[in-house]
Amino acid sequence: MSTYKYNGCGNTFVIRDFEDGMNYAEEATVLCSSEQFDTDGLIVVKQNPLEMLLFNRDGSQAPMCGNGIRCFAKYVLDKGLSAENQFAVQTLAGEMTVDILQHEPFYCEVNIGRPDYSNEAFGAADDASYVNRTIYIDGKEITFTSLFMGTVHTVVFVEDAPAMLESDLGEKLCHHPLFAQQTNVNFVQVLNQEELIVRTFERGVGWTLACGTGCSASFVVARDAGLVKDKVTVHLEQGALTISGTEDVYMNGPAVFEYKK
């Protein structure tokens, strides 16, 4: 079976068509390894209806991925799996609507849905509020907000988001006992009311060059705190995404086919 590699703002994936009887959790650990394709995840494509299954580099399954669904959409276009420029994609986080805005270079917009701040949605370990919650890690005070935005996310506002790549705080928050299912951790620097810088420590992956649902979650928390307007540009290490919305959240960004073998 052919394996395809795609890239969404530096977030890389191998993509394969669905095949009955496959252990995709195990397959992900092999295909995504540095000895093989060296990617962040494995995307499995099911048809009739279109459905995206996503497995992280460590074999764990995630409900959704913002960069992944754009790569999925590019694959659908490349393979002619849909004759329309708008189509629905089933995910474990619900149905997502994709609008292909431009074929070359490829850009699409995805309706990510609405945020859910309820503790039940993201596997909170207790009943206390996770909005502007303060805890101590290694004696330092950390304030964060957690929510479900396609998957579980935690947002921490910082003065210098790129500098957090040198910190172990992302890993420690990801594995903190407060998160029964672990959490993706987004460090967010507010540049102005229309621009953010985001760096994400992703559960099952580690530091990643981009996280679409993480950018969406970061926008939502910043918007709800009155720090940004209803549309922002989110700057990543290898590109940028446009995130917008007042109720449903929309993600606009690129995806690139790299190669197949």
Rank of each mutant, 00 (worst) to 15 (best):
L81G: 09
L50F: 08
S218D: 02
I69R: 06
R114M: 15
D78V: 08
V158K: 03
V158H: 03
E194L: 13
K231V: 09
V205I: 10
G68M: 02
K74P: 06
F179I: 10
E104H: 15
P162D: 03
R114N: 15
F144T: 01
A125E: 06
A180P: 12
N192I: 11
H103P: 13
C215N: 08
G170H: 05
K5G: 11
L236R: 00
M164S: 06
D116H: 08
G239T: 00
G150E: 00
G150P: 01
D138P: 05
C211E: 01
P115M: 08
E171W: 14
S146M: 06
M1Y: 13
L227V: 01
R223Y: 11
E104K: 15
L191H: 15
A161G: 05
A255R: 00
R199D: 08
A225D: 10
I197L: 11
F201Y: 11
A217D: 01
T145P: 06
G21R: 04
E95C: 13
A93R: 10
T242V: 07
E194F: 14
Q189A: 11
S218K: 02
D78P: 08
G239N: 00
V198S: 03
E159N: 12
Y130W: 06
N56L: 05
F72Q: 01
S218Q: 02
T29K: 14
K260Y: 12
R223A: 03
H103N: 15
D78S: 11
A88Q: 15
E171I: 15
A210G: 06
E19I: 13
H153S: 03
T145W: 03
G8P: 09
L92M: 15
V221Y: 01
F18Q: 13
V221P: 00
W207G: 05
E35G: 10
Q182M: 15
F13G: 08
L169Y: 14
F257G: 00
N186V: 10
D17P: 12
D20C: 12
F72S: 01
L42G: 04
L147T: 01
L209K: 11
P49Q: 05
E141G: 05
M96S: 14
N11P: 09
E237I: 07
E51L: 09
V156F: 03
S167V: 07
E202Y: 00
K74M: 08
R133V: 05
G59W: 00
C108E: 07
H175M: 14
E51S: 07
T3D: 12
E141P: 09
M164L: 06
L31S: 05
G80R: 11
I135G: 05
V14L: 09
R133I: 07
A163Y: 04
